[in-house]
């Protein structure tokens, strides 16, 4: 574009203008290159190899193309939706990590969205002492994960406190095995997850605060009751937050890896996808190649879902033109 000076001069000018900025962001550039992009590329490369264990002899690392991916979809019983039933036929595999993980996501995300939203609407009232209540409801979110694992496994033990109380009010607790039972473990994980609602609630509260009072004032003058105001104003005007919570909810739910779910085994009803990756890579086997392939399958699923939601996000309201 400019006629004066050659390319050399233009480069010199850019360097002169940019050197300080480059110096400041240099740590980030190095960090991204070493700890994000290099591992990402390597992860994909590993996923194409039969690669077991660190520091193994070179020739035990064998290229197998998409063999790991093919194995995941055709040979790994932990992932299959149907398994042989022992009588020559097939039956539905209740312990498939796909099934467990999707079921977990499909059940927890709506429950979390709706309940945390209701909590936020409830706590959005400007009355005395409301801050204390918000604080108390948020508090369980900062219990370290390993500690809450301990608490819930003890409270929901067959001989734990919850059964003690239920027994006192006359409920037969003999079948209530909670985390210890194959069928009860899953609902228990969802119930105990409810104590984390405070995190999303805080986010909702911030978006509710952004709705101007005048809008409610006007609606009230027009005779809209509390319920109408909720459905016609509050919900439509918080769609960008619903959207955000939905995306992060899906990403989070599909990667759920909590301490409860570790070491319980495949039949526990809590064998989630992230646990499977951990088991393959770090715990029982050191199948880095196969585990990398599994992580890319997860990445692909999350990517497709995120894209789908973005594509269908016409319903999201981002506020007035900013």
């Amino acid at each position: 574009m400019t006629s004066k000076g050659g390319i050399g001069k233009r480069i010199l000018k850019t360097v002169k203008k940019s050197w300080a900025g480059w110096l400041f962001v240099l740590p980030l550039v190095l960090g991204l290159a070493i700890f994000t992009f290099y591992p990402m590329v390597m992860s994909f490369i590993y996923s194409l190899y039969h690669y077991d264990g660190v520091g193994m002899v070179e020739d035990s690392v064998v290229f197998r193309g998409f063999g790991n991916y093919i194995e995941a979809f055709t040979a790994d019983q932990d992932l299959m939706f149907t398994i042989p039933d022992g009588n020559g036929g097939t039956m539905f595999n209740r312990n498939s990590v796909f099934y467990t993980t999707f079921r977990y996501a499909v059940i927890t995300i709506p429950i979390n969205l709706v309940l945390s939203y209701l909590l936020a609407v409830l706590l959005n009232r400007k009355t005395k002492g409301i801050g204390v209540f918000r604080l108390l409801i948020y508090l369980p979110c900062i219990i370290p994960g390993v500690v809450s694992g301990l608490i819930w496994r003890s409270a929901f033990d067959p001989a734990g406190l919850v059964n003690y109380w239920l027994d006192k009010i006359g409920v037969d607790v003999s079948g209530l095995t909670w985390f210890r039972g194959e069928t009860t473990a899953f609902p228990t994980l969802i119930i105990t997850g409810l104590w984390g609602l405070g995190g999303s609630m805080i986010l909702w509260l911030s978006s509710l605060k952004n709705i101007p009072d005048t809008v409610y004032e006007a609606a009230r003058l027009d005779g809209a009751g509390p319920f109408t105001r909720l459905i016609k104003i509050t919900v439509p005007m918080s769609t960008s937050m619903i959207f955000y919570n939905l995306i992060t909810g899906i990403i989070g739910a599909l990667q759920t890896f909590s301490t409860y779910t570790l070491g319980l085994g495949k039949q526990s009803g809590l064998y989630l996808y992230a646990v499977k990756i951990y088991e393959e890579a770090f715990n029982t086997a050191s199948r880095y190649g196969y585990a990398s392939a599994l992580s890319w399958i997860l990445f692909a699923v999350i990517g497709v879902l995120t894209l789908l939601i973005f594509r269908t996000s016409k319903w999201v309201y981002y506020g007035e033109e900013s």
């Binding site: 590993y46 890579a281 770090f282 992580s295």
Partner: peptide
């Protein structure tokens, strides 16, 4: 997803 990075970072 952090899962994608964990294994190669561990190897690195």
């Amino acid at each position: 997803p952090s899962m994608v990075l964990q294994i190669p970072q561990y190897i690195l």
